[in-house]
């Protein structure tokens, strides 16, 4: 889902850069207001954690494997603003060091995965968590949000490709959404298991748990 360079036209990647940079600026102000100096080491180590977590390969079917994307997981554990920053940092490193996602497309990739994926996913999670309440609400919210965030982010990606004139919407949207509806199931399963584990061992580390 990391869009490479050349796939987006200027009318798409330039606005996406502007939105992502200003969005990240806002997130940084929110997070550093709450955490002060502690933000820098915490965000850095958490970005490394998401990166390492993405390296774990899970068996799927018939020899294929998939891995965690971690947008909703980061947002559930760290909160929507810190989660978005962490994912953006991971994407930047992937773009610079691993050529996973292009430089001009980085703004769009951050928009899709930090803002639509992690932050949008957090909103879904928060609604469900508040509606059901208690630990069940946290787990159910994580499951639905993890699945929805993957599908939503890939759909937005399809829309961006369509705006760029790279791929028509009536093909790109169903193709991306259908594939990611399957990928989303894996994402939901892993996210729920990880959040469940943290709930059992260090429930105090889950963001805003008392609110529920």
């Amino acid at each position: 889902m990391h869009i490479p360079d050349g796939f987006l036209a200027v009318n798409t990647w330039a606005p996406a850069w502007v939105i992502s940079v200003s969005g990240l600026g806002y997130c940084i102000r929110r997070v550093s207001g709450a955490l002060k100096d502690k933000m820098i080491p915490l965000m850095g180590v958490m970005a490394a954690f998401i990166f390492a977590g993405q390296m774990l390969n899970f068996p799927v079917v018939a020899g294929t494997s998939g891995h965690l994307l971690g947008g909703v997981l980061a947002a559930v554990l760290l909160g929507p603003y810190a989660g978005a920053i962490v994912i953006a940092v991971v994407l930047t490193i992937q773009c610079l060091v691993f050529q996973d996602g292009g430089l001009t497309a980085l703004g769009a990739n951050i928009f899709n995965m930090s803002f639509v994926g992690a932050m949008g996913g957090y909103m879904i999670y928060n609604l469900i968590r508040k509606a059901i309440g208690s630990e069940k609400g946290i787990l159910a919210g994580t499951a639905v949000a993890a699945w929805a965030s993957v599908v939503l982010a890939s759909s937005v990606c399809a829309v961006q490709l369509a705006i760029s004139g790279t791929s028509p919407l009536r093909l790109a949207l169903p193709a991306m959404a259908l594939v990611h509806m399957l990928i989303g199931i894996g994402e939901a399963v892993i996210s729920v298991l990880v959040v469940g584990f943290v709930l059992k061992t260090r429930p105090d580390l889950i963001y805003n748990k008392e609110d529920a």
Partner: peptide, 12 residues
């Protein structure tokens, strides 16, 4: 998944 969970707690 538990490994990821432990990794998170230890990283934090």
């Amino acid at each position: 998944s538990n490994i990821i969970g432990v990794l998170f707690v230890r990283s934090y």
